[in-house]
Amino acid sequence: MYRFLLQPRWLVFHVIVLVAVPVCAALGLWQFHRYGEHKEAGGTEEKVSAAPTVPLGELVPGAGKVESDDRGRSVTATGTYDAARQVVVPGRKLAGRSGSYVVTPLLVPGGPAVVVNRGWVEGTVAPAPPVGPVTVTGRLEWSEAEHTSDADRADDLRPGQISMISTPELVNVLPYPLTDGFVALTAQTPTADSAALAPMPVAKESGGGGISGRAWQNLGYTAQWFVFAAAAVFLWWRVIRREADERREAQEAELLLELGVKS
């Protein structure tokens, strides 16, 4: 009855299902892993560490990554701002007003450049950074590309604007390597003309019990991929069952026809 399953077209069907099911399951497991990461990060975007200030190069050397325990740590870096490649991140609100973050690369001698969020400005016109060597102090933050909801991304960008403070994106447009994450500026020597900029605000801690919207999104994708895997198995079984029923009915009809002719 089921020998038709060995026909070439049915073998192709089996292979497709055998590939689709583990792929969907793997994607579901990956999304569940991402859910765990975002759940651990909690519902806040930022935090402040009470640990003492350290040079950024010691905390995140070379191609190192910003670890969870280092996020919010006060760090320092000395270099020269690359004013020609300064950009703004529009659509960011502060005290109910709409404005932009001013992001300027800091060229550090002998090491990768540092992405510095110099602060918030109303509108989209950013003040120029100071000329010459500066020492910046600020909070070390994760790249927003991984830890900020898509709902926060700005649309309709113009030249000199970016949607997120994203090291993985900036490294593709800047002609030099970058330190992972970015520094939210809190102090600068010399201060120069930074009075027009308001520091990047710090969100209140949620006590670690909150779950971000991105985490819920990953959990939804997890369920979706496992549903797809189950649906593929069900479709495979349903198609085979229907084919078998049709073949059995055809055989029964043929048998009845033969009996009718003989009688």
Rank of each mutant, 00 (worst) to 15 (best):
139 R>C: 03
140 L>Y: 01
140 L>Q: 00
140 L>F: 03
140 L>H: 00
141 E>K: 01
144 E>A: 04
145 A>W: 14
145 A>M: 14
147 H>C: 02
148 T>E: 09
150 D>I: 14
151 A>P: 09
151 A>G: 01
152 D>K: 15
153 R>S: 13
158 R>D: 13
159 P>N: 10
159 P>W: 06
160 G>F: 09
163 S>D: 12
164 M>L: 14
165 I>K: 02
166 S>D: 04
166 S>R: 12
167 T>S: 14
168 P>C: 05
168 P>V: 15
169 E>T: 05
169 E>H: 11
170 L>M: 09
170 L>H: 11
171 V>F: 04
171 V>A: 11
172 N>K: 11
172 N>C: 12
174 L>G: 02
177 P>M: 06
177 P>T: 05
177 P>R: 01
179 T>C: 02
180 D>R: 00
180 D>H: 09
187 A>R: 00
188 Q>E: 03
188 Q>H: 05
188 Q>L: 08
188 Q>D: 02
189 T>G: 04
189 T>P: 00
189 T>S: 03
190 P>M: 07
192 A>T: 08
194 S>P: 02
196 A>Y: 10
196 A>H: 10
200 M>A: 04
200 M>Q: 10
203 A>C: 08
207 G>I: 12
208 G>H: 07
208 G>A: 06
209 G>Q: 13
210 G>N: 03
213 G>M: 06
215 A>R: 06
216 W>Q: 09
217 Q>G: 14
217 Q>D: 08
217 Q>K: 14
218 N>G: 12
218 N>R: 15
219 L>K: 01
220 G>H: 03
221 Y>I: 04
221 Y>T: 06
221 Y>M: 01
223 A>G: 14
224 Q>I: 15
225 W>V: 07
226 F>D: 05
229 A>V: 02
231 A>H: 09
231 A>N: 02
232 A>M: 07
233 V>M: 02
233 V>F: 05
234 F>L: 15
236 W>F: 15
239 V>D: 03
239 V>K: 04
239 V>A: 11
240 I>C: 14
242 R>A: 15
243 E>V: 10
243 E>H: 09
244 A>N: 07
244 A>S: 10
244 A>I: 11
245 D>R: 08
246 E>D: 13
248 R>C: 06
250 A>D: 10
251 Q>I: 10
252 E>T: 11
254 E>G: 11
257 L>W: 13
